Amino acid sequence: MEEFYRITNKNLMDNFRAALHQHTWRLLRFYRARRTAFSSEMDQILNSLDQETSDITAHRQTAALKGPPLYLRNSQEKLFRNCLDTDPEVEQMKGLIVGILTVLEDDDSAAPQNLLSVAVVVEEEIVLQDLPDLPTAFAYLFGLIYALNLKYPKDLRYTFETVQKVFMELGTDLSARVRSLKNKLLQ
């Protein structure tokens, strides 16, 4: 994302991954400590993480990224969407203004579904696809929004403000919700 670098003088992926690495452990510790204060979606995220036995670092980072929308009372389902590879393409992205689409293999077996693709969606169109993981897709989505100077969707503004001001350290004027999360991360 050369345009992001031109605007901010920061390498999007390097800075995002470093911030995610720095905050993952604290975010997960916070989610577990406040588990009862969150919706059932947080239980699903943490239970899924507890069952993982391979590539734990990637799963921890994914769980850490899925938590802020829940904590900040943003709409997680408007940011992260899972679908099956057999779902009609138009249905996969319907209503997704900006978000991350994870395509899973449609398999009738009891085994966990295989991840086929991760894509970034803007205005119900895939703009980047075949990304290696959710953290990469999240970084690219944030970079696109920031570089194109798009307004954060109302249902997700606190989540993207957290990425911008806490993770990427771009700006200092924090809303009360984001300041609260930042203070909890620094404890």
Rank of each mutant, 00 (worst) to 15 (best):
M1V: 02
E2A: 09
E2I: 05
F4W: 01
F4T: 01
Y5A: 07
Y5K: 08
T8A: 10
N9W: 01
K10H: 09
M13A: 09
D14S: 08
N15P: 02
R17L: 13
A19E: 01
L20H: 08
W25S: 15
R26M: 10
L28Q: 02
R29A: 15
R29V: 11
F30M: 08
R32G: 07
A33I: 01
R34H: 15
R34Q: 11
T36I: 02
F38D: 04
S39L: 07
S40I: 08
M42A: 15
Q44K: 13
Q44F: 11
I45W: 06
L46M: 12
L46K: 03
L46F: 09
S48G: 15
S48H: 11
D50A: 14
Q51L: 14
S54R: 15
R60T: 00
R60W: 00
Q61K: 09
A63P: 03
L65D: 01
G67H: 05
L70T: 05
L70F: 12
R73L: 10
N74S: 03
Q76D: 10
E77V: 10
L79Q: 03
L79G: 06
F80A: 03
F80V: 02
R81P: 02
N82M: 05
C83P: 02
L84I: 00
L84A: 09
L84S: 12
T86F: 11
D87S: 13
P88T: 06
E89F: 10
V90Y: 15
V90K: 15
K94N: 04
L96A: 06
I100D: 03
I100A: 08
I100M: 07
L104P: 03
D107W: 06
D107N: 14
D107F: 07
D108Q: 07
A110W: 06
A111S: 12
Q113I: 00
L115K: 13
L115S: 08
L116R: 12
S117A: 14
S117M: 10
V120L: 11
V122R: 12
V122W: 05
I126K: 12
Q129W: 01
D130C: 03
D130R: 09
D133M: 04
P135H: 06
T136V: 05
L141M: 07
F142E: 01
G143K: 04
L148G: 09
K151S: 15
K154L: 09
K154V: 09
D155Y: 04
R157G: 00
T162R: 04
V163M: 10
K165N: 01
V166F: 04
F167D: 01
E169Y: 05
E169A: 14
G171Y: 09
G171C: 10
A176R: 11
A176I: 04
A176S: 10
R177V: 07
R177N: 14
V178Q: 03
R179F: 07
S180D: 13
K184N: 12
K184S: 15
L185Q: 03
L186C: 12
